[in-house]
Every structure is written in C-alpha cells, then in structure tokens.
Design a protein around this nucleic acid. Sequence first.
DNA 1: GTCAATACTTTGTCCTGACAAAGTCTTGAG
DNA 2: CTCAAGACTTTGTCAGGACAAAGTATTGAC
Lengths: 250, 250
Amino acid sequence: MTSDLTPARPVEVDRSSPVPLYYQVATRLQELIEKGEIGVGARIENEVDLAERLGVSRPTTRRAIQYLVERGMLVRKRGVGTQVVHPKVRRPVELSSLYDDLIAGAKEPHTTVLDLKVVAADATVAAALNLPIGTEVTWIERLRFAGGEPLALMHNAIPRDVLEVTPADLAERGLYELLRRAGHVPRIATQVIGARSATATEARTLEEKRGASLLTMTRTAWDDRGRALEYGSHLYRASRYSFELNLSAG
Amino acid sequence: MTSDLTPARPVEVDRSSPVPLYYQVATRLQELIEKGEIGVGARIENEVDLAERLGVSRPTTRRAIQYLVERGMLVRKRGVGTQVVHPKVRRPVELSSLYDDLIAGAKEPHTTVLDLKVVAADATVAAALNLPIGTEVTWIERLRFAGGEPLALMHNAIPRDVLEVTPADLAERGLYELLRRAGHVPRIATQVIGARSATATEARTLEEKRGASLLTMTRTAWDDRGRALEYGSHLYRASRYSFELNLSAG
DNA sequence: GTCAATACTTTGTCCTGACAAAGTCTTGAG
DNA sequence: CTCAAGACTTTGTCAGGACAAAGTATTGAC
C-alpha cells in the first residue's frame, strides 16, 4: 500500500521545450487524474520518488503538485501523502465575463443595442467609477435575448478615455472583449446582486408582467492599477435567469 | 530610482519562532503596505536585495512575495519589478460562511429556530446532497433578524451522519461553526442566486407585502473528499438585503 | 534626431542538499 | 490485550547557487 500509481507508460519531460518543467509535470498529472488512471482518493507517489522517476528535482515536482493543489485537484497532508480529490469538489469558475453565457450558450443568444451615447456621469456612475461628477462617459443600453426571448436589460458606463465604443463594435464583440483588445485587462470586479419588482416600462421591454420580480446586478470592473474600466447596472428576468457561483473556502 | 522602499526600521525575522520565515516576511510586507509606508504603485525592493537585507535566502523572499501576489496585493513583472496594487483592487472575499454577517454585523443580528426535525430527503434535497431519496436528514428552519426586523427565512438540510444538531447548539453557534467543530471543513460551495415573488405565507413571516420580490439562494457545501455537508435554501427580503461579491479574473 | 543593437536589471526556472514537523505503523512493556 | 514509546514515511521549510527570459535604459550608427 505504498503507492497506487503505476502508469502504463512513465511520465516523461521534455527539457528542450520552452514549457516549464513543473508545468509539464503538472499537466501530465492532471491528465492522469482526469482520465481516471489515478482513482479518486488514491494517493499519488511521494514527492521524492516521483522526482527521481521523472528525472527532475524535488522542488520542481513539489511545484507541480502545488499547482494542482491550488486548483483543487489534490490534497496534501504532511506525514500522510497526496490524494486525489473528488471531482465534485473541483475548482470554482473564477468568473470571467458574464454568467449569461453559461445558459445562453445553448440558446442562441444575441444582443441588440438600444442606445449608445456620451453623457456626463451622474452621482451614481461617478461614484462607481471613482470619477468626478460630470466626467464624460459612454452610456450603453442593450437588450440581451436568449431563445428568442428577452433575458436581460443591460446598462453600462465606460470612461471615454478607457474606450471609444461604436455600435458596430458592440454588435460584433462583447464589451469585455473590446476592453481587452484596447489593452484594458479587468482584474477584479465588485458586484452586488439584489432584486426588485419591475416598473411598467421595464416590464414592457422584458416582456414580463408589471410587478414581476427582477434580479438586479451592478458591477464595477477594475484593472491592475485600480483604474475603473466599466460600470454596469443590469436587470434580469428572474423567471428566466439565475446566477450560479462556485465559492471556495480559503 | 532603484528602490522606493526605505522603511524606518528594517524588517527583521525571528528565527526562533515556529512561524515560517516566508510567512514572517510576507506579514511584515503586508503591514508596510497596509499602513501606506509603501505607496500604491511604488516598486518594492527587488528580491535579491530584499533577501540580503533580511538575511534570508532568495527562495524564501520569493515565496513571501508570491504569497502576497496571490492575495492580490502585489503585481510582478519580469524585468520590471514588483509593484503595490491599488487597494481598490485588493482581495476577493473567498466566502467563508454567510454574507449576512457583512451587513448584519452592524445591526445586532439574531436568529430564531422555527423548526428542527428529522425527515426523509425528498428528490430536491437528495439530489443536492447526492444521497438516495429517503435518506434521513436533519431539516432546519430558521428566521434571521437584523435591526429588529426579519431579514431572511432559511432552510437547511444536513445528513444525519454528518452532524447531529440540537436547538441549543444552533441557538449558540452558527451552522458552519458547528460543522467545523464536528471536524467537517467546508471546502467549496455551489450557489445559485435568483429571485421570485413572495407567497402569502412567506410574506407574513418576513413582514413583507404579498408579492414582494425576494432573493432566493440555494447552496450546497462540500468537504475535501466531495462529501456534501449541507444544503440550504434561503429567502431574503430584497428590500433589505443584497449579495456583494468580489470576483477576480484569472 | 531616429532607430536598432547592446548592456543591464529583475523576475522565472531549476538544481542539490539538509533538517523539521506531522502522521502512521511497529514494537515491546505491563 | 492495551497502550505508549520509538521508528519510519511523507510533506514543510530553508539555503545557496546557476542560468534563462523579459523588460528597460543606454549607446552608437546613420
């Protein structure tokens, strides 16, 4: 019961590759785990043996294992060993763009731009973007459809010096893709999810009954240096939409 | 312009302490940053110099810096250096227990147990907890107050072999604390947030008008080995509550 | 003055070696 | 048989050195 791992062909590393060794090892291990060649709960070889067998140093092996531990695939216990974690427990989507995509992906989504203009930031927008009130921002109003039905009414504000948006761009690409192409990489976002009843106008736009429950989501996205890139205030039909999150405890 | 960091007193390490050196260094750096002694955007000393000045090896220094990079306080760029990130961009709450606490903390929260019984899992609960239908689970119904007003109506299901809950325990400690004390450490949770209108009964319990918008949140928490620890189905008054999230892009 | 080649700085990767700490298993006393 | 002491296994921490790769700044040719 010393080791449960004896792969058919030995894991090998390619020293001439520009891919870091630790990453090669990690990828290899990940494949073995995902293919089920190392059963869930099984212990993998200890660091020292594994390093020797692969012909790399222990720190390199360690780093590879660490990488998978951080991704939630492995668990280490001192004096015990390293075990494969149950797939259910695997790792959180960290969020990237919009949750819509999860659902909408299967429902032929599309988006129409209702409005696009340059306006002076009001108090709410200015506070969210950390700008002086009255700063010019691009204001976008979009209606997102999925499966032929309206799904969400989306409002965005973007500082003009961050990005100049044209309707044509928006029709083609998502807002986040446009940001990235302009060299603005969103690093973190703060998001607030709430709910309220639809007004008559909102209900009409979203094809809901007046007073229907809507999910509200406001978000501000920031780049590396703490610069606000985008503020969004969105309304989702609660009857058609929900947010799904995976959270990991430190 | 080689270094912008010249702390008043040199950072020191205590080699007799059981606290790992890298962690001591990381903590020290974090303090300096949080106190603002290293301005936002400023570069910190390079690894080699820092290591020498502290009398530790470069790998140790590196690990300390890496730790802060992972927590979002620092950004590294090869050939450039390591910079302090804007505080706005700081760290994602990883989730631990309930978001309530953020808001409720200031509003003298308390919780009353409405019901606590052992029942057979129905299809929904069984599916969520990955158990056979009919398995006995503890079913808990609680009403959470903040500022003297009802805030949330909470339902939880817990497999009996995970935890035996008594009303007295629940009155004293949170559900998550009880789980932890029983040796069950929640590792990740999958959560779905939605909205709907209150039924007459729900409205009465939560002191809302009938048809008022409610936030719904269902969650299943899992431990290391993929074992489901808890299923929760909660209703929040949208007029009093919202979920705040910080998300980080990979 | 402009632009490309070069030197320099700083982080990234990798190695060998050593000891410490936390579990687990074995052994032996009672 | 029970239980504690000790041996063993495995991960955790740390050192010191070497070279590679990616930016930045400088220098020099034109």
